[in-house]
């Protein structure tokens, strides 16, 4: 279980770095946070898992998309 999540997290992190499209990179970083929160839950840290799921994968991704939208509007 943990091995599977670990492979997924690392694959998503590499996608986030290497992909040329910014929106895919931002979503991949959000998925890294989401699976990290599952990992926290497996490591008996429910408090940390709740915070990471709400802030790391929800709100951070949202503000990234606000900035991306703004840049897209300037460019075209």
């Amino acid at each position: 279980m943990a091995l599977f999540i670990g492979v997924l997290v690392l694959a998503m992190a590499i996608i986030a770095i290497l992909n040329k499209k910014l929106s895919i990179a931002v979503i991949a970083a959000g998925v890294v946070s989401l699976f990290a929160s599952v990992l926290y839950l497996l490591m008996a840290a429910p408090d940390v898992a709740m915070t990471e799921a709400a802030i790391g994968s929800g709100l951070s991704t949202l503000i990234f998309f606000y900035v991306l939208n703004k840049i897209k509007r300037y460019n075209g």
């Binding site: 990179a25 931002v26 970083a29 890294v32 946070s33 790391g56 990234f64 991306l68």
Partner: peptide, 14 residues
Amino acid sequence: NIIKIIVSFTILDT
């Protein structure tokens, strides 16, 4: 790209 650097920063943080 600056946005990609910030994305990398969040991964480092995690």
